[in-house]
Design a protein around this nucleic acid. Sequence first.
DNA 1: ATGTCC
Length: 474
Amino acid sequence: MHMNNISGKDLLAIGYQQGKMLGLALEVLEKHYQGAEHEAVLTLMKDLLERPEAFLDHEILEDLATKMIEDAKEIENTIFLNNTSREFAVYGSEYIAAGAVAQMQTAMKLPVTVAGALMPDAHQGYGLPIGGVLAAKNAVIPYGVGVDIGCRMALSIFDITEENFLLNRDTYKRELIAHTRFGAGHGYHGKDRTDHAILDRNEFNLTQFIKALKDKAYSQLGTSGGGNHFVEWGIIEFAEDDQPLNIPKGKYLALLSHSGSRGMGATIAGYYTRLAKELCKLPREAANLAYLDMNSEAGQEYWLAMNLAGDYASACHEVIHDKLAKAIGGTLLAKVENHHNFAWKETWNGEEVIVHRKGATPAGKGVMGIIPGSMTAPGFLVRGKGEETAINSASHGAGRQMSRTAAMQHITRQEMQAMLQANGVTLIGAGLDEAPMAYKDINVVMEAQKDLVDIVAKFSPKMVRMADDGSKED
DNA sequence: ATGTCC
């Protein structure tokens, strides 16, 4: 008769699975069944595996039994990914890091995924990559939308000449500083706040959670935040007359802004991602792609909250543009606005789907958008071509070629100054992580998506405001 | 992206 000397191999042979449970079982055996007879312990462990509920009062095996029942429930609730990824189009694959492609491949295994595409500015994100487009059937993925819900570009084109701008740079600079506010957490207080119809929206009364966001939303209305957000004066050049916008060819002063839904959107994103992760258990590699059923209460709630955050982001741009237009006394010729980090109900390949564009620009046929380059590189006013394989999308910028950390380490202030000077750009704020050299060449990115958008006009930044280094200003 | 788990 040989004594207990049970190994992991023995437990695997009687049906235990590789993992945490196996380790716990071995620990218990070592501690409590050291001298017991081998066959008897094996029978006991087999019994435990088959009927853990019979051991809930067992002096030694109680904890193991409880854990087994919990594990079984979790496995039962896990939603499995498909074994293979659905195919998806990649634009400019030579510029996209492997990590972003791998994230997209995981997203293409979700049971709700219908189609996907990767834009040429794609890089690794949280859940879905930035620059990732995902069409899902009757489901919305909070991290397929992203943290800064409804982040967008807004462009106002004024009937003001380049000469006027160059002659009055000081005035334009003063007004840009006076009417914009940057930095994480920053807002307006008291009489400095702006009233806007967005604050009267019924959705603010939807739940206690959303109601609690209203005060901050009021305070941050018309502010820009941090990171890659900016407000800038620039010169937009139309090489030809544009009929739809009714703008004759030529150069005009324009205002371009990039920002989102501030603290409100971030709080909504965090709350519903956590809820989605509770309701939708996916395997570890896809955990951040947890989705909400569009027919569920949580799904409908998120949809309304997301749309409110998007409209709030729009209101923020409206406030900024209104203030600055009034300050410079310009006549508005045209206004274009487009958002990313959002989900839309759209028809794709004949069926209704939820299209997530995380850092991707809508580019349906004839749909206008703005794709910025960097603080010195041009941005482009574009018109979508409605390419179905790209799910009617395009990039939302040039995309980074250096991480924030790498940019801080490798780019010097002097290099950035030289670049600004060479391009005649005045910069207010911004850290080295936003230096032009940290971004891909926008011309290469535009070339990679020439089947997705037509270029309508070229916008050259001339005076850029961003958040101060590290958003530490007060 | 956000006062980045006060």
